[in-house]
Design a protein around this nucleic acid. Sequence first.
DNA 1: ATAGGGTTAG
Length: 691
Amino acid sequence: MATANREGLNGIEEGDGVIIVDHGSRRKESNLMLNEFVAMFRERNKYPIVEPAHMERDCSRNKKTVGIRKREVGGRGGREAGIAGAIVSGLLRYGRVGDAIAYFERNPFRSLFSWTAVISGLVQNGLSFKAMKVFLEMVQHGVMPNAVTYTSVIRACGELGDFNLGMCVLGLIVKVGFERNLSVSNSLITFNLRLNDTVSARTIFDRMQSKDVVSWTAILDMYVQMGELAEARRVFDEMPERNEISWSTMISRYSQSGDAEEAVNLFIRMVQQGFKPNKSCFASVVSALASLEASVMGRIVHGHILKIGMERDAFIGSSLVDMYCKCRSIKEGRVVFDSILEKNVVCWNSMVSGYSLNNQHEEAKELFGMIPQKDNISWNSLITGYLEYEKFDEVFEVFDDMLLSGERPSKSTFSSVLCACASLASLQRGKNSHGKAIKLGFHDDIFVDTALLDMYAKSGDVESAKKIFQRMPKRNEISWTAIIQGLAENGFAEEALAVFDEFERTMSIARNELLILAVLFACSHCGLVDKGLHYFNSMEKVYNIQPNDRHYTCVVDMLSRSGRLSEAEKFISDMPCEPEIQAWAALLSGCKTYRNERMAERVAEKISELAEKHPEGYLLLSNVYASAGRWLDVLHMRKQMKEKGLKRSGGCSWIEVRNQPHFFYSQDGSHNEFMEIYGVLELVRSEMLLT
DNA sequence: ATAGGGTTAG
């Protein structure tokens, strides 16, 4: 709560439906499990050290140590236990986890095989915690795990992200001498990567006497995790051996890092070299095609998927639905969606966000209501759809429903909701959301913090924005852009430029277009025209950024504001790209300020030409004529707008009182208490005149 | 029976 107050938040509202998820009970259970493992180490006699060379025989000898089991199993135990293992693993392969466990628990033939099958099946079905409990039970029954068991167990520890548990298992592995086993080492590499320990991963890899395609593929991921995709590619290119999975990994990594084009290129090369893409690979490449909105190639790949009969698979189906919806073919997406046999939550989410991001909110909401097991992303899909189409009230409505349903918002949820607050410049809602974010433990997240500081800046609370920026332990280029833009927009342009100087001195991250735009904006607003021009001219050389139409508009604005009108006019006519209508508008407003009637006429003419294509031009002109008192021209413009079917969507101010926004349009009388409000205003005005 | 790869929101 102290943090909240320091950042300008006046306490958090009670009873707002926030539910804090409790992870305590599982942690307790995990600690109990740790104690059991520690006990295992201490009881040397019960779990004897076995020489690696005798490992195979030890597995079978083990059955002798389990006295009771042996009697139950009887003479044909080995074979029957083998069948039991096969049944269990068969059930697990079809995701029938409950049936498999029930069978396993009822069946007396619990061999090393069936124990291992259950453990690996649980891990593959995302039930790693349960897998660890079964593993513990297995060891307590006196059944000695073998290398295959340990690979699954290590994977489970990695999936749980539990370092201590992993170390205990590693201890057992070393104790029984499996640490040199190829498969075990491979799984240890991934375990370390999951826990962000790239150094240990590398050490294990380097120490391995023999490496296979699995080891190489795992180490490829180490470079991806270190943010060195190019280095990963080098490993991939130089690997002694490649299979479908190595190809698949590289393709998915490109797709996930936003380089969809390279993902597709690699896919084509893979097919050319005679590799058969499998389910995962198709899913990755379709996802890459979705982000490229490449419907032609998308359809071709879809054809191949149909050929091998995988369209009805949940993984491939989800990415196909996404691909069609991103290409605006929602109906085709729906056909694929309906054809998926066993829909998981991802399939539903794909279709919901397909509708949602194509402005079909009713359909999205209806489908959302039908999801059997909603997750975080289901909610977020609905929220981002509303945000994208500026339906802010709905954003808050869904957010409230989400909290009431008990679903924990994620950092994505908060960045969407805060973005809605920022768009409404609603400090009240923003602070409320800030409170919820703190309550749910998101106060040190770079995305949430950036959204918060942007919200405060856009709502005019610069002090709070600055405080958040200063306390952020890590900042990315988006955070820097937000603070610079925020300061400049609120009239602290010099300070914005000082922050940019600090950024230039201390940060080595790449500058992006938006950051430079914010800097130009700041220069424009504190009259530092030459400095602004300097930044603009060095964009390509120093920052390697091609200026876009918004940068050009900013420069026109900068020149016009400072009265360098002829320079501005020349700049606009020399532009290599089509000027935005806002550029002309900026020049026109400069002409007005510096009373250059002749240039104003020329510019106005240009704008009315452009208004054919950009109807908002009429609005601009009508405003300019209105302020010059040229009412005949205003009427003419209004008539044009009416003919073009353009609704008057011009200037409007609003203020929030007790969570209720009150709007004031530039035509008077739109507010229903307008008489009273203007009465009070008149009173205030006369008081001011008296003093 | 196993370790490496998969889909959705930002």
